[in-house]
Amino acid sequence: MKVKIIVNGYKKVYDVAPDEYLLDTLRADNFYSIKRGCDNSSCGVCTVLLDGKAVQSCTLLSVKADGHEITTIEGYQEEAKKLSEHFGHQGADQCGYCNSSLALTVHAMKTEIKNPTNEDIKEYLVGNLCRCTGYEAQHRAIKLCLEDEE
């Protein structure tokens, strides 16, 4: 069946199966920032924004996105670059598999919470798992990036 989705500002039409997940639809369309991790919405690496809200594309049926706007980090390249500078300086880069989705979730957080506290940041990003860094360096980098933008 055909679904119409606006992806990063571009109108797209996808021919999808009724039980197809958005993760598969978008990866097949070369959106490599969206990763497959856990298959059940518990790790965060497949995060996309659905009308600005962070959702997990591994459990979101593509038909549910029909008529909606989807944003991936491919749509926020400058913002990703800026956050990545801080990641670089804080040593927060490791395997990078969770980084795109984390950057996207940080973007969503900024639109929802003004001046988030340490606890706000941890709570908002709690669904974005990382097995490499121990979170500390990521947290420093995210805070510095937020301060920079103030």
Binding site: Y32, S33, K35, I73, A80, G88
Partner: peptide, 17 residues
């Protein structure tokens, strides 16, 4: 303490894995 050589591209979602 130099930034990793690959972090930026990975965060931007480049084809890599």
């Amino acid at each position: 303490a130099l930034p990793s050589i690959d972090g930026k591209g990975l965060m931007m979602g480049k084809k890599a894995y």
